[in-house]
């Protein structure tokens, strides 16, 4: 009669298609290790949260799609069971159960698994090494306070793109032994690092995929991030920084390297690295 009704075969195809979406998503998840290597202790926590949500949400996704496919399939049958309204009880259950399940699943993810990670990366611990990161179009700079543990003052008038990109004030004694490293961030393995992140110009995103963490660099304020690099990087295979906040056309090439050293090698590097006052 109606043009659409010839499409019962289309219903079968559609039901298969809907089921296939769910199967494809699960298959893709297991196809290969999508997550980058874990290079920080915090990465384990983040990956645990992601895996938990993938399992819980994956079940919901697969279950939902199979129900959908089944209803589409069942409805092709002529003379199947006739419609009747859901009873009050069924309607109540179908309202309360999904709400309860979603709230339970999601709040467990964020409060039980997520909150400790979130707190960890935002809380400075005694003994953490403080490293200052500055973003500018289109490069990253790292600064270390040197032997005195004091940060030298900045004076914007002293900025010189070639020799003083952080605009350190040469008159400030505290800055004499500061170490400025352009495009390379050197960190000790196994020790907490407290990043203080700044930007000269526009927003940037300090992002090391292998650390599983990112934090925007915002001009006019200092943002922070804490992590513990887990192991020294092999020679020639540093970790990579990839800017994660659009900063105009050079955004894609705003990169830096992260070299993680053993505590001994790090101490050696710290002694030999050139100082600002040199």
């Amino acid at each position: 009669m109606r043009r659409g009704e010839r499409g019962a075969a289309g219903g079968l195809v559609l039901a298969l298609f809907l089921a296939a979406i769910a199967v494809a998503v699960v298959a893709l998840w297991f196809w290969r290790g999508w997550l980058p290597p874990q290079a920080s202790e915090q990465a384990r926590g983040v990956d645990r949260v992601i895996s938990y949500i993938a399992a819980a949400a994956g079940l919901i996704l697969v279950g939902g799609h199979f129900v959908l496919a089944r209803f589409v399939l069942a409805s092709r049958r002529e003379g199947g069971p006739a419609y009747r309204p859901a009873g009050r009880r069924a309607e109540l259950l179908l309202s309360v159960i999904p709400v309860a399940v979603m709230v339970a699943v999601t709040e467990v993810g964020t409060m039980v698994l997520g909150a400790p990670v979130w707190k960890d990366v935002h809380t400075r611990q005694p003994g953490d090494l403080e490293v200052e990161i500055t973003g500018m179009q289109y490069e990253w700079l790292a600064r270390y306070p040197g032997g005195d543990g004091q940060w030298g003052r900045r004076d914007i008038e002293e900025f010189d793109g070639a020799i003083n990109p952080l605009a350190l004030d040469p008159r400030d004694r505290a800055g004499k032994d500061d170490i400025v490293s352009r495009g390379v961030i050197v960190l000790p393995a196994g020790r907490g690092v407290w990043f203080s992140i700044r930007s000269w110009d526009v927003l940037h995103g300090f992002n090391v995929p292998a650390f599983r963490l990112k934090q925007d660099a915002v001009p006019g304020m200092v943002t922070h991030l804490r992590l513990v690099p887990s192991a020294p990087t092999p020679p020639g295979a540093p970790l990579e920084v990839a800017c994660a906040e659009l900063c105009s056309s050079g955004h894609y090439r705003m990169k830096a390297k992260v070299i993680v050293l053993s505590p001994e090698d790090y101490a050696k590097w710290l002694e030999t690295a050139p100082r600002f006052g040199d």
């Binding site: 997550l35 926590g45 983040v46 949260v49 992601i50 949500i53 993938a54 819980a56 949400a57 699943v105 999601t106 993810g109 964020t110 698994l113 997520g114 909150a115 990670v117 979130w118 990366v121 995103g205 995929p209 599983r212 963490l213 990112k214 994660a244």
Partner: peptide, 13 residues
């Protein structure tokens, strides 16, 4: 669900 969980968002943002 992934993105709304702040800890997962650290990686996915």
């Amino acid at each position: 669900l992934f993105l709304a969980t702040s800890a997962a968002n650290l990686h996915l943002h």
